[in-house]
Simulated scan of single mutants.
Amino acid sequence: MISNPMLCALQFAYEGQSFEENFETLQALLEQTPQNSISLAPELCLSAYSYDKMEEAAEFSATILSKLAKLSVGKTYGLTLIEKIDTKYVNNFKLFHHGKLIYTQSKAKLFTLGEEEHYFSAGNIEEINFVEINGIKIAVLICFELRFPSLWEKIKGADLILIPAYWGKLRKKHFEVLTTALAIANQAYVLCANSADESMAKSSAIISPLGDVTSDDHHNLIMHTFDFHEIKKIRRYLDIGLTHNAANGSI
Rank of each mutant, 00 (worst) to 15 (best):
L182S: 06
K169M: 04
I155D: 03
E198L: 12
I163A: 01
C143K: 03
H97N: 13
S199F: 09
K156F: 05
A158H: 06
F111E: 10
V140E: 01
A196F: 05
Y89T: 08
K172V: 01
Y189K: 10
P164N: 10
E145I: 04
L182H: 08
F130S: 12
I128H: 13
Y89N: 11
L182R: 07
S150K: 12
G114L: 12
K109S: 03
G114I: 02
L162V: 08
N194H: 03
V140M: 04
T112E: 12
G123Y: 08
A158Y: 12
L141D: 00
G157W: 14
Y103C: 04
P149F: 08
S199N: 13
C143Y: 03
G157D: 11
W152A: 05
L160W: 12
D159T: 05
A201G: 01
W152F: 14
E145V: 00
C192T: 13
I136K: 11
D212V: 14
C192E: 06
P209R: 09
I184V: 15
V131M: 09
E198F: 11
D212Y: 07
F111T: 00
K109L: 11
K156H: 12
E132S: 14
Y189H: 10
V90Y: 12
P164Y: 06
I161M: 07
N91R: 11
A165E: 05
K100Y: 06
L146C: 04
E153F: 06
Y89G: 08
F96T: 04
L141P: 10
L151T: 02
T214D: 03
I155W: 04
E115K: 15
I207Q: 02
G114A: 13
E132G: 11
A188F: 11
R171N: 11
L162Q: 08
A205P: 09
I102D: 08
A165D: 01
F175A: 01
I102V: 15
I206W: 08
H118W: 08
F148D: 13
I128T: 13
E127R: 14
N92V: 13
L210R: 13
K109Y: 02
Q105T: 07
F130T: 11
A188L: 09
G135Y: 08
F175G: 00
A108P: 02
F96A: 04
N134T: 09
T104N: 14
K100P: 00
A196K: 13
C143S: 14
K137R: 15
G211D: 09
S121V: 05
S121L: 14
A193R: 05
A193C: 09
A108R: 08
T87M: 09
A188Q: 10
